[in-house]
Design a protein around this nucleic acid. Structure first.
Length: 551
RNA sequence: GGCCCGGUGGUCAAGCGGUUAAGACAUCGCCCUUUCACGGCGGGAACACGGGUUCGAUUCCCGUCCGGGUCACCA
């Protein structure tokens, strides 16, 4: 038996399976031509970053547009980071915005699919099969260096452009079998390192789906494959998992770009076919003129839960993400107003190479459009669902009289040019507040050109003529009829021509009524509002206003 | 510092050798209008800089500057 084989047995005595067994156990998938298999591989930190959602959406769309498979694999190889309940939080956030796994981890400790387990912490034996194989092929070796020794090496390398564990710095690379046996017998902890066959003089090439063709020096680092607890590092797990799970397209953040040479080499050493890569740029945030990544600590919008709590519809967030993913999405949307987002021909190659600034204003605009297209029933349903969770008091008010609430939400909605003033459900309360006595407040703030006596005069006159069963035309006619006797003109154009001849125009008259009834200067159609409120409430508010202005 | 990547209006971005340098958001003006919103029309506003290559560069090459990423027994 060669030394390599002996070493492999020494290091992994319990491993009897071979890479071929693994290949047989996880055969290539039987999918139609061109179907892409993608994945999202979050660490279970319990915090779902907007970037995760973004990258996840890219992976998800990539699979969906090709009738492929999208799966979730949990990268829980760092035991220090593990947090209870994290999976539920992350999966929940993903699903809330339409990223649903076909396969893999689909719930806390719930897995689906034939390529599992999908928790990396449960795949130790699989990694060890390949680790053993690498050792037997003289492509990996145990390293007994302690953290202190590693620090020492780093200290020596101050003027060395190529840092790290490589070449002459890789002390354990040249250990003899006897020395290794001795160390193991002495119970020294070890990591397994790659015996990198690379040469920094050589180039390696990556053809990234998003970034394009890139050239980098070959990897020379003897990177750690297995940590001293036997759990793989990201690099090793990535190679083994994505190969065995038959991932065709690795979609991940572009912070991984620089480790591509390592990954390419690893795939080669393991005899795996290299998958396609798509490195997506991070979403940025503006900060005093500069850009930085959306920060978990500083930016509330970095957390996906923020959108749930604020009440952005799933559709809005999806649409916004789409505009960031493929800039032709908005054009497509314009001509396909009612089409499902699934019908959009998403294209990885149209992704932006550099990170886009997160734009809340744009999100709001997108969301207003989305919501404006919903009917009142839908808006009601979503608002109620949101309020039930995040604003109980408002929820009670909203459901007290469902048809009343729906009627409110239907004002100016069921028209060819619907209003666009709701961007998220948490805004609805304020939008409808004056319809509920419990929320109604009035500070009677009039435009500057309307004095209290003027308001008083208009209110008095209006109260005499208000008709509760008027049609809209009749209602407005009354408003106009009020004008002339009081020195206003019903004709806005006329007023503009000779402003000095009038106290104001019909707009001013209706503003007085509007403020009295709603407490606001700007509202949707006043007639609709007053009809919904009903005579009793209207008169009550007019009366209150009159008292205010005559005081 | 080494290695990568990027730099088109305030933002997202098309264009990739010859364009009046699209479009969207934001902003401003006008029109519509009982307010606001919607809608319509219009305005301001950009190829980081310096060298090449070329008849011609936003587009290609080099350099500078500026941003970003990465150099762990983290992912």
């Amino acid at each position: 038996m060669s030394d390599n084989l002996k070493l492999a047995e020494l290091l992994f005595p319990d491993i009897t399976k071979t890479p071929d067994d693994m290949e047989a156990q996880f055969p290539p998938r039987n999918l139609k031509e061109g179907a892409r298999v993608t994945r999202l591989a979050p660490s279970p930190t319990g915090f779902l970053h907007f970037g995760n959602l973004f990258t996840g959406t890219v992976a998800y769309r990539t699979a969906k547009t090709t009738d492929g498979i999208f799966y979730v694999r949990v990268e829980d190889t760092d035991q220090k980071r593990k947090i209870e309940g994290a999976i539920e939080v992350m999966l929940g956030g993903l699903e809330a915005f339409g990223v649903k796994a076909d396969e893999g981890v689909v719930g806390e400790n719930v897995e689906k699919g034939d390529y599992g387990p999908y928790y990396q912490s449960q795949r130790k034996h699989i990694y060890h099969v390949f680790a053993k194989d690498l050792v037997s092929k003289d492509l990996a070796y145990p390293c007994f260096c302690s953290a202190e020794e590693l620090d020492e090496i780093r200290a020596q390398q101050e003027n060395e452009p190529q840092k790290g564990y490589w070449g002459k710095y890789a002390k354990c690379r040249t250990l003899t079998l006897a020395e290794i046996e001795e160390n193991i017998k002495a119970g020294k902890p070890w990591t397994l390192r790659l015996k990198s066959p690379g040469n920094a003089e050589n180039k390696c090439y990556i053809d990234d789906m998003i970034k394009g063709k890139i050239e980098m020096p070959e990897n020379v680092q003897d990177i750690v494959l297995l940590k001293s607890d036997g759990i793989p590092t990201y690099h090793f797990a990535h190679a083994v998992d994505d190969h065995l799970m038959r991932t065709t397209h690795v979609v991940r953040g572009d912070e991984w770009m620089s480790s591509c040479p390592v990954h390419l080499q690893l795939f080669k050493c393991l005899g795996f076919k290299v998958p396609k890569y798509a490195h997506v740029a991070p979403i940025m945030k503006e900060e005093n003129g500069g850009k930085r990544k959306l920060s978990k600590r500083k930016d509330p919008e970095a957390a996906v839960i923020f959108y749930v709590e604020t009440g952005y519809p799933k559709e809005s967030v999806n649409e916004y993400i789409m505009t960031l993913m493929n800039s032709n999405f908005e054009d497509w949307r314009k001509t396909n107003k009612d089409a499902s987002i699934d019908a959009f021909p998403f294209n990885l190659k149209k992704m932006s190479v550099s990170g886009a600034l997160f734009d809340m204003v744009k999100l709001n605009d997108v969301s207003k459009n989305v919501i404006s297209l919903m009917n009142a029933d839908t808006v009601y349903k979503y608002t109620a669902e949101w309020a039930k969770e995040y604003n109980k008091e408002f929820y009670e008010l909203l459901i007290k009289d469902e048809s009343y609430s729906k009627a409110i939400l239907n004002i100016d909605r069921d028209t060819p040019k619907p209003r666009k003033d709701i961007a998220c459900w948490s805004e609805v309360k304020d939008y409808v507040s004056y319809f509920f006595d419990e929320l109604f407040e009035n500070s009677y703030e009039m435009p500057e050109n309307i004095t209290a006596p003027m308001a008083e005069e208009i209110l008095k006159a209006y109260m005499k003529v208000y008709g509760e069963n008027d049609t809209k035309d009749e209602w407005f006619q009354r408003m106009k009829d009020l004008c002339e006797p009081l020195g206003y003109t019903p004709n806005v154009k006329e007023y503009k021509k000779n402003p000095e001849q009038f106290k104001g125009h019909v707009g001013d008259v209706s503003t007085v009524i509007r403020v009295a009834v709603t407490g606001r200067r700007n509202t949707p159609d006043l007639y609709s509002i007053m009809s919904l409120l009903g005579k009793e409430k209207v008169m009550e508010r007019l009366d209150l206003a009159l008292k205010h202005f005559s005081a």
